[in-house]
């Protein structure tokens, strides 16, 4: 009676076997790391955020655990755009059917455009603009995603250059996230990804009397950010028509369904790789499938979405 349950979906014209996305910064450093994540059930890969020059990132400790999740200040470590795209190309040689999002980070629209030119010449399927890293503020100042003007300038310029769809990765650390979402859409973004890590936050070693992270502060992720991620996605979904990759605190099948229901088209899974192990992708996929079965659905497109917020004035 019932059809076969499938988790496959389409995102900006590319097919994926699962709605789960590896977000930027988690595992996406090497072609084999990308492979390992896909073999464990993830659908789409995002690379580390690549910069024009290589970056070693902050010294350790760069991560700290706490009851609600993780604090990190990796500091945008990456081998630079050329070597980073080589890792993506090596991965695509092995798994050409898996969509890859090349994430890039810069501080000016011109540098983002320059990075975009490099990405054009790679096998990447999508370009993600990381406008929202919260743990390099000493070096670069406030995340760009806090400013409508900067978001507009960057997205507009990159859209002129990029030959592949452009995703804007937004920060939750603003008071007007859905405004920024609308701004990014108006500037031509093809999709949004939210949320980057929260904060920044801080943890203290009470014996050494020092902040635990070398950078003092870092982005907060993990289960504690889920309610904020859901709210951010839902409010943005209510106001834009472009698809949203919803990420933040997703650790189970029901979490992922909540995210889809709140308006996400795809679901990012990052910190859960620490808490739940590499098998967490398969566990979440299975949880989504069980939800579909429970409600006699056969695909994730049938998962109902919350009614959109009515626009205020």
């Amino acid at each position: 009676m019932k059809g076969k349950i499938s988790l496959s979906t389409e995102f900006l014209g590319k097919k994926t076997k699962s709605p789960l996305v590896l977000p930027a910064g988690i595992m996406g450093m090497t072609w084999s790391g990308m492979r390992y994540v896909i073999e464990n059930g993830c659908g789409i890969i995002t690379s580390k955020s690549l910069t024009l020059e290589s970056r070693s990132g902050h010294p350790g400790p760069v991560v700290a655990e706490f009851a609600g999740g993780l604090l990190n200040c990796m500091g945008l470590c990456n081998p630079g755009i050329i070597d980073g795209l080589a890792e993506i190309n090596d991965f695509k040689k092995l798994m050409p059917e898996i969509p890859v999002i090349a994430s890039v980070f810069a501080t000016t629209a011109e540098d983002f455009a320059e990075l975009s030119r490099y990405v054009n010449d790679s096998k990447s399927d999508f370009l993600e603009l990381n406008l929202s890293c919260p743990n390099v503020m000493d070096e670069f100042g406030l995340p760009l995603a806090g400013s409508k003007e900067q978001v507009t300038d960057i997205v507009k310029l990159v859209k002129k250059v990029s030959k592949i769809p452009v995703i804007a990765k937004l920060s939750p650390n603003v008071t007007n996230l859905s405004e920024i979402a609308v701004t990014a859409e108006a500037a031509g973004a093809d999709a949004l990804c939210m949320i980057n890590t929260l904060g920044p936050g801080m943890l203290v070693d009470i014996d050494l009397v020092k902040p635990v992270l070398s950078n003092r502060t870092g982005g907060v992720s993990g289960v504690c950010v889920k309610p904020i991620a859901l709210r951010a996605v839902y409010e943005s979904y209510s106001r834009v028509t472009i698809p949203i990759i919803g990420t933040g605190g997703i650790a189970s099948g029901s979490d992922a369904v909540e995210m889809l229901m709140s308006g996400a088209s795809l679901v990012g899974v990052g910190s859960a790789v620490y808490a739940g192990g590499i098998e967490v992708f398969n566990i979440i996929n299975q949880g989504i499938a069980e939800y579909l079965k429970k409600h006699n659905y056969t695909n994730i497109g049938q998962i109902p979405r919350l009614e959109k917020l009515h626009e205020q004035a």
């Binding site: 595992m27 450093m29 090497t30 084999s32 390992y36 990132g57 991560v63 990796m74 620490y274 590499i278």
Partner: peptide
């Protein structure tokens, strides 16, 4: 190794992608 908890991806080994820290 940087994170040692299997998320940063710095210590994956080609071609398997296994993380040396986990």
């Amino acid at each position: 190794m940087k994170c040692a908890i299997g998320i940063c991806g710095n210590c994956t080994m080609d071609p398997l992608g296994i993380r040396l820290c986990v």
